[in-house]
Design a protein around this nucleic acid. Structure first.
Lengths: 174, 174
DNA sequence: TGTACATCAGTGAACGCGCGTTCACTGATGTAC
DNA sequence: TGTACATCAGTGAACGCGCGTTCACTGATGTAC
């Protein structure tokens, strides 16, 4: 189920219980094991569909620079559930199931590949494009992760978004 | 205790149990409440001392650029316990205790201030220094967080470190 | 159309477990005489 | 020096709770005759 994917993005893989997820789906917890082998199994599936959903939402009519502006925004910061799985799952995934880790790494690689493709379209060489794309992903994720982590200090969080956004934008002028 | 600070950085605030932390300190779990009011109380203290320890380790004889090179390294990626609390606690802290969130935000603000100070020393204007410092922090944290999250794919994780490092370094040439 | 039966997704009680927290108690230490 | 007592950090059994997982059962649905 994809409501699980939302819950996991909101509060991590451990916090949402199987009961909570199943109630969300209008069923009882007992029915869970008719659909998945274990909670870790669901987590891996939820991770996969989160990446698919995210990548498919980035259609070719949205330019890279406007995509980045929308990515590093207060709206994205405040909407973990429907947001990007990279920052949502980043921290703590190294203490999770191996299969889940691989699923995540694959999603990240796909994301990088997508950005690199856009850069190649813009005339950047294939090799440079990948390096550049990775740097952009690190800055995107860092910006959102830090903005979310500092929401208790509204001004700081807003400054993080603004500075991270302009810091990435500056990279495109070179 | 500061062994708690290491454990929390390694596996987050929820995973390490009070028993585990106390055994680490050579005591039993019952003695815990003679020292702290609750687990959340310990978490806030551990967060504070992690930032203090980190910031005091960055002495004035270490230049910003060499500090950043050492920060975004495989050694730092593989040593969460003694590493920087910013990437270690970043994700998931928004679901924690309010006092802990404030402690974290304060640590981040201090870190940014420290970097901004170094930039000012290098002749950057005060206002620009802060913006620049925030961008650097986001890129640092993003680099380490993504490198850790993708360790299951060794090549990808190494590429993330290399690209994030050179991406930040490029910023100093402008 | 009506009856008998197989199927199978979903139910909910039950399991063993580890958690954070409490609390009556222990036993080493330091002070008073 | 020796005894009596207060102090207090640390102990470990016990608590209530929610977790992931299992499993005997229910009850609606579809097929066979």
């Amino acid at each position: 189920l994809e409501s699980a994917s939302r819950r996991f993005r909101e509060r991590g893989f451990d916090a949402p219980s199987v009961s909570e997820i199943m109630i969300d789906a209008g069923l009882t917890h007992g029915a869970f094991y008719g659909h998945f082998r274990s909670k870790a199994d669901l987590a891996a599936s939820a991770c996969r569909i989160a990446f698919e959903e995210r990548l498919s939402a980035w259609t070719s009519d949205i330019s890279l620079s406007s995509y980045l502006d929308r990515y590093i925004s207060a709206a994205h910061r405040d909407n973990r559930g429907k947001g990007c799985p990279m920052p949502a799952f980043a921290s703590g995934i190294d203490n999770q199931d191996k299969a889940l880790q691989r699923e995540y790494a694959r999603g990240v690689a796909d994301y990088i590949e997508r950005i690199a493709g856009r850069l190649v379209d813009d005339g950047v060489s294939r090799l440079q494009a990948k390096k550049h794309a990775i740097g952009i992903v690190a800055a995107m994720v860092g910006g959102i992760v830090m903005a979310r982590a500092t929401v208790s200090n509204h001004q700081l969080s807003a400054d993080v978004l603004a500075s991270a956004r302009s810091s990435i934008a500056a990279r495109f002028s070179t």
